[in-house]
């Protein structure tokens, strides 16, 4: 059986992780954790005794950023990642077409793979916890999605439309540029340490 310290540590880890999944800023997580520690220090209770299940407690808390959750919040993060993957996928046939002096074929498989990629990223963003903690859902989403995208691109070779090399190159470069700029702007979001308000 785990000792009390280990059990408490697990409670705090689960609580912190639950708030991370909700995309709560590190400063607010630090504040919430410090509040639990302070209360438990005063009451002499364990976090589990005073606050119950860490996931349920995390879900019960309100944060100002919850109100801002919407396209304005997730699009700057999800958009560049999807753009990068789509550009990578659309860019593959360009060198061959350029060498052979032909147009770039955009196949139904390529379009299907693009849709699968977008669906996978959307699922990962909005159901992160479910995808990472449920093996069935995670397997279907990540492995199944990847297999489906690869098979789609490999088997559905019929051309949906052809586009000139220049047009496709400009499109792919624009997507890469959008992805690079977007990821650069989001670097502060990715570096979001948990800050203890007590210093």
């Amino acid at each position: 059986m785990a000792d009390e310290t280990t059990t408490d540590r697990q409670w705090y880890d689960e609580f912190t992780l639950s708030l991370r999944y909700r995309d709560v800023p590190g400063t607010e997580i630090g504040d919430a954790v410090a509040q639990v520690e302070s209360h438990c220090s005063d009451s002499g209770e364990s976090p589990a005794a005073a606050f119950g299940d860490p996931r349920a407690y995390a879900d019960s808390l309100e944060f100002p950023r919850d109100d801002a959750a919407g396209a304005g919040h997730w699009l700057p993060v999800l958009g560049p990642i999807v753009a990068f993957l789509v550009a990578l996928q659309l860019g593959i046939p360009i060198p061959r077409a350029a060498v052979e002096g032909t147009t770039v074929p955009v196949t139904w498989g390529s379009l299907g793979a693009t849709v699968v990629i977008v669906l996978m990223m959307t699922m990962l963003w909005f159901r992160t916890r479910l995808v990472l903690e449920n093996r069935l859902v995670g397997g279907v989403t990540i492995i199944g999605g990847t297999v489906l995208a690869v098979l789609s691109a490999a088997l559905l070779r019929e051309s949906a439309f052809d586009a000139p090399v220049l047009v496709m190159t400009v499109l792919v470069v624009a997507l890469f540029a959008y992805a690079a700029v977007g990821m650069w702007r989001q670097r502060a979001t990715l570096n979001d340490p948990i800050v203890d308000p007590r210093g």
């Binding site: 410090a34 509040q35 302070s38 438990c40 220090s41 005063d42 407690y57 309100e62 007590r198």
Partner: peptide, 29 residues
Amino acid sequence: GGTLYPLLGRLESAGLVTTQWRAGEGGPG
């Protein structure tokens, strides 16, 4: 605590309460 702090959080969100961390005496703030 699991009942009290979410309630205090809602009062804060509604602008009815403000918060401030103060140093503790021999314990955490």
